[in-house]
């Protein structure tokens, strides 16, 4: 049985891998394959955000009583990343390699500092504050959601 930390951290790394692939294809000027890879990345990223916003963050808020704190910041950062993802998509549509590289760099750093916060604060708090059976239930349903979103 995976902890929520392990499950979500693993998903972060998976997203990173798909992101690196899209970045590489775009820098090679292989725009068709880059578009496919970016689509795959966007799906994975959105599935991850959805799982957090609809399941994990509410559980965090309930367990800690903090509704205006960390999760609010995380939701806001998700929105920033969605915006940058849109800018990345726009650069891809224009086949503008420079813009793509700049937006990709921005998204990568934004994503990683966000991941750091989740992995060092949010997930460990979920692991330690939620009762064992609740953790198991959440982890199973989030895991299923992530797998289904990838398969879709």
């Amino acid at each position: 049985m995976n902890t929520i930390s392990e499950l979500m951290t693993h998903d972060h790394r998976d997203c990173d891998g798909i992101f690196a692939r899209a970045e590489e294809l775009a820098s090679d000027g292989d725009w068709a394959d880059a578009a496919a890879a970016l689509k795959k990345f966007a799906d994975a990223l959105n599935a991850h955000f959805d799982a957090e916003e609809s399941t994990l963050f509410p559980a965090f808020e309930q367990a800690t009583g903090m509704t205006q704190g960390p999760t609010m910041v995380m939701r806001h950062e998700h929105q920033n990343m969605r915006d940058t993802l849109a800018a990345l998509q726009y650069a891809l549509d224009k086949q503008d390699a420079d813009d793509f590289a700049g937006e990709a760099e921005t998204l990568l750093i934004m994503m990683q500092q966000h991941n750091m916060k989740e992995e060092s604060v949010i997930y460990p708090m979920l692991d330690s504050r939620l009762p064992g059976d609740e953790q198991e239930r959440l982890s199973a349903s989030v895991g299923k959601h992530l797998v289904e979103a990838r398969a879709a």
């Binding site: 800018a87 420079d98 813009d99 590289a101 700049g102 760099e105 921005t106 750093i109 934004m110 500092q113």
Partner: peptide, 24 residues
């Protein structure tokens, strides 16, 4: 070279402004 452009970007974004991307 990673930290300073990101901080500039972060503070612009947090102020609700449109920030140029890191390479700009």
């Amino acid at each position: 070279y990673k930290i300073v452009p990101f901080l500039a970007w972060l503070h612009l974004t947090q102020a609700g402004l449109k920030a140029p991307n890191m390479k700009k």
